[in-house]
Structure formats: C-alpha cells, structure tokens
C-alpha cells in the first residue's frame, strides 16, 4: 500500500469509524430512546431494508437537482457573458444580482410553491434559484479576469468578438466556472430538499419528513445518509466533468 492511498483512504475511514463507535457508545451508555437517536446498527438495518424505497426517492431528488442545476448553467452562462462584456448591462444588473444573492432563497420557497404547484417544477425552480447565483457571479468574475495581454494579442490580430469569447475569454474563465459549478451543485441538492420540505409527495426530503412524523427515526437517518451520498455523487460528477474538459487546470483558484 502506498503512502498516498494510506493518507487518502485509511485515515478518513479511521476517522469515520471512530465517530460511528462513539455514536454507538453514546446510544448504549446513555440508553437513548430509538426515537431520539437510533444506534448505528439500527440505521444500517433501516437503510438496508429500504433500499428500493430510498433509491426511488433519491431518483426524484436527483432529477430535481440536476434539472435545476442544468437550467442554472443554461441561463447563468449567457447572462454572465452579457454582464461581463457590456458595461451598460453590468452597471444595470450586477449590483442587483449581488443584492439578490443575499436574499435567503429558502424564504421564497413557499411563494414558488404557490406559483408552480407541488410537482417537479417548483422543486426544479428552487434548485435553479440557489444554483444560479454562484454560476453567474463566478463566471462573470472569470470572464473579467481574462489576462489583459491575451485580449491585446487577440485584438492585435483583429479577432472578432466571437473568436475572443470562445478562444480566449471562455477558456480563461473555465476554472472560475467550474468553481461556481461545484458550489452550485451542492446548493442545488439543498434547494431540491427545501422544495420537498415545503410541499411535495415524493423525494428524499419528503421521506425524511414522513419518517420523523411517524417517529421512525432510523428511517429518517437512512434518508439522511442517502441524501449525503447523493450530494457527494453529484459533486464528484461535476469534478469528473472538470477533469474531462479542463485537464490542464492547476488546483482550483481561491474563491472571493
């Protein structure tokens, strides 16, 4: 076993194991009721016993997350280009965008539910809303951080605006876009779950609510774990895409 796999796998696993042991000990020694804190084995049992159900609900939440995230990319990227390349649009909308970013989007969830109903659309909309801002803000920052020399080089060759955008600005901004996308995808999961909390009849968030209302805490924990796994998976997906389209990238630039 190499030193690298030791530090990257064995140490985190040991840490996790320690926490699970401490958790088990706390349940056993503290004689906590299952409703308050189920022991690890009960959670594992609930997880293993409900795999079809968990998969089904995860699929719903995953769809809401990915649709919301996809829409955020689809709208965020062109808007970032507009804001970064036009002084007028920038002056008109950028301060507004920053101001909107500080609005707690969770507070909008009930309103969106009223507008769009309890189906996929409202969840998608909330996921989109929370994922949209990091994408547009980071992309615009990246576009504007294009090295001046590269722009001058392109101008000195009489490059067209389209050439400058696609051959210079956008590739230069890609590290920023990917950083924004990584933040956005985790936020999109949160957005989807919030949507499910506020009004839904399916999804992991809905399962979590139902389980707690029925005092089935082990199942609630199992849903929670499914949610974490989902969160990690979608994050890894974005990272894989990053490796695929931008293998030259040095370690991600510091944000803000």
């Amino acid at each position: 076993m190499t030193a690298r796999s030791l530090t990257r796998i064995v140490y985190p696993m040991t840490g996790l194991l320690l926490i699970v042991v401490a958790w088990g000990l706390a349940c056993w020694l503290g004689r906590l009721p299952v409703v308050v804190l189920p022991s690890p084995d009960k959670v594992l049992y609930a997880f293993a016993g409900n795999i079809p159900l968990l998969l089904e609900e995860s699929w719903v939440t995953l769809k809401e997350t990915l649709y919301g995230f996809g829409l955020a990319l689809l709208l965020g990227l062109p808007m970032a280009v507009a804001v970064a390349n036009s002084r007028t649009l920038n002056l008109m909308f950028y301060p507004l965008l920053i101001a909107l970013q500080s609005v707690p989007k969770v507070a909008l969830a009930p309103i969106i539910l009223v507008w769009l109903g309890p189906d996929l659309q409202s969840k998608l909309a909330i996921a989109w809303l929370v994922a949209f801002f990091p994408i547009i803000v980071d992309t615009a920052a990246g576009l504007r951080a294009t090295p001046k020399e590269l722009l001058e080089l392109a101008h000195s060759l009489k490059a067209t605006r389209t050439q400058i955008l696609f051959k210079v600005q956008f590739p230069a901004a890609l590290p920023f876009v990917m950083t924004g996308a990584k933040v956005a995808i985790t936020l999109a999961v949160i957005g989807a779950v919030i949507g499910e909390f506020v009004g839904s009849s399916e999804g992991l968030g809905f399962l979590l609510l139902t389980a707690t209302s029925q005092l089935d805490t082990p199942l609630a924990f199992a849903a929670l774990f499914a949610l974490s796994i989902l969160g990690v998976l979608v994050y890894l997906m974005v990272e894989a895409v990053e490796l695929l389209i931008a293998p030259w990238l040095p370690p991600a630039p510091e944000r803000h």
């Binding site: 020399e149 080089l153 590739p171 230069a172």
Partner: peptide, 14 residues
C-alpha cells in the same frame, strides 16, 4: 500583421 511579445509569456494554459 504584427507579432506581439509581452513581458510575461502570457501563454494559454489550456
């Protein structure tokens, strides 16, 4: 039809 060389190499990392 000019060539331009800057103080920094300013290559494209991608």
């Amino acid at each position: 039809d000019y060539g331009f060389v800057f103080q920094a190499p300013s290559l494209m990392p991608w």
